[in-house]
Amino acid sequence: MKIIVLVKEVPDTYGDRKLNLETGLADREASEAVIDEISERSLELALSFADANAGTEVAVLTLASEGATATIRKALAMGAGSAIHVSDEALRGADLGLTAETLAAAIRRVGFDLVITGNVSTDGSGGMIPAMLAELLDVPHATGLSSVTISDGAVSGSRPVESGVQQVSANLPAVLSITEALPGARFPNFKGIMAAKKRPLEVLSLSDLGITADNPEAARSIMLTVAEKPPRAAGVKIIDEGDAGDRLADFLVENRLA
């Protein structure tokens, strides 16, 4: 079985995250770049399956700027057998549509039985890519699973929804997206770090994939303006002079919090 895991490089979730106000994009200099935790969980799912099923091929696919090599090597050190790095200046600030189109083209080029991805990234938080990929690849999509069983020709699992838990399954090939309920990743061990240096890492540009970033026919979302979140204003202090309860209630009503 061939599994492709989508791995996204994001600004450290625990560090300061900033927008570059000129470009409107995340300021990747502001904090350390790391593998998105949900991507690590996706990779762990693929690797545990590969551990138990000889002959499983796990490839990671990353769409990121040139500097993301260390992140990709880490995924290889964890145990992925190969990596595809799609990198192209024209992808800077790519919207969800272009991102999905590019990823789908890379996935099709490599070939797959199963694509595993996180349900939503910690930086962009679009949450649309898995569904878009399934549509573009014309395969079923098992979304937002909190537990997963992969078997020879199918994938199944449970999806928590507001009113309960749904049991879902899909025949392969398919796209599967997971939630943070899945186990965290293994640590890359020293043997893995050494082995990672020798594992194939293919770098592809948009022209390799036959995609035009500024295709006038394609619908694209364009960011027109960007503003930083305003600094937090000073709070309202209520000093109890016997009427604090009333004033608190008034405050909540005024701010539509009651």
Binding site: D12, Y14, S31, E32, V34, E40, G184
Partner: peptide, 8 residues
């Protein structure tokens, strides 16, 4: 998983 930001 992230690397401690201390080294900066």
């Amino acid at each position: 998983m992230s690397v401690a930001a201390g080294t900066n």
